[in-house]
Simulated scan of single mutants.
Amino acid sequence: MNSITRAVLIGGPGTGKTSVINALKDIGYNVLPEISRQVIKEAQKKGIDQLFLTDPHAFSDRLLEGRISQYGEATNGLYFYDRGIPDVPAYHRFTGDPIPEIYVEKSIRLRYDYCFYFPIWEEIYQQDSERYEDLNQAKKISGIIKKEYESLDYQVIDVPKISIEDRVAFILKYLNP
């Protein structure tokens, strides 16, 4: 019988999640990358600078679809996700936009086994062409995301502000004590 363990890395933008995901991939773990940058780049090719700001629900619908697809990719073993399905409604809580019931339903139904939270780390935060949030917005988003997962009864594990290698070791030690 196949056994799947899903670990999601959450937190605001620019907190080091993707760096840790890439390090986990480099050492042979199954990883599913953040897909929002892909959605943003596709929209930019069509002349839409920031799809999330222009049409938040179109953006989120694409994210939800992609994250559900990623969730289904797991077949056996340990999988790490750079953000998860509950991030979708969390971002709408940040903007104050209505949250479609499907966002909540999928967040409840498709669950991760472990939830690792990356707190805002001012020293590493950087804006770029796909990350429109300034540091203050990133802080607010970070808190909302953490609360979203907690409201879904996840045990949220805080990842310390240490080197990438030490963050990887922290996560792996937690998963395999």
Rank of each mutant, 00 (worst) to 15 (best):
R6V: 08
R6C: 06
R6A: 11
A7S: 08
V8C: 12
L9Q: 00
G11L: 07
G12D: 08
P13E: 13
G14T: 08
G14C: 14
T15D: 01
K17H: 11
S19V: 01
S19K: 00
V20K: 01
V20R: 03
I21V: 14
D26S: 14
Y29M: 02
Y29I: 08
Y29C: 07
N30C: 10
N30A: 10
V31M: 00
P33G: 09
P33W: 00
E34F: 14
R37W: 00
R37Y: 07
Q38P: 08
V39A: 00
I40C: 12
I40K: 12
I40D: 15
K41H: 13
Q44T: 14
Q44S: 14
K46D: 15
K46R: 15
I48L: 06
L51E: 12
F52R: 01
L53V: 09
P56K: 13
H57G: 03
F59H: 10
R62F: 05
L64G: 07
G66E: 07
I68M: 12
S69F: 13
Y71L: 10
Y71A: 13
E73C: 10
E73G: 00
E73D: 08
T75Y: 09
T75Q: 14
T75D: 15
T75G: 10
T75C: 05
L78Q: 11
F80H: 03
F80D: 07
F80I: 04
Y81M: 04
R83G: 09
I85Y: 11
P86G: 11
P86V: 01
D87G: 05
D87M: 10
V88S: 04
V88E: 12
A90N: 04
R93S: 04
D97I: 00
I99M: 07
I102A: 03
V104E: 11
E105Q: 06
E105P: 01
K106R: 01
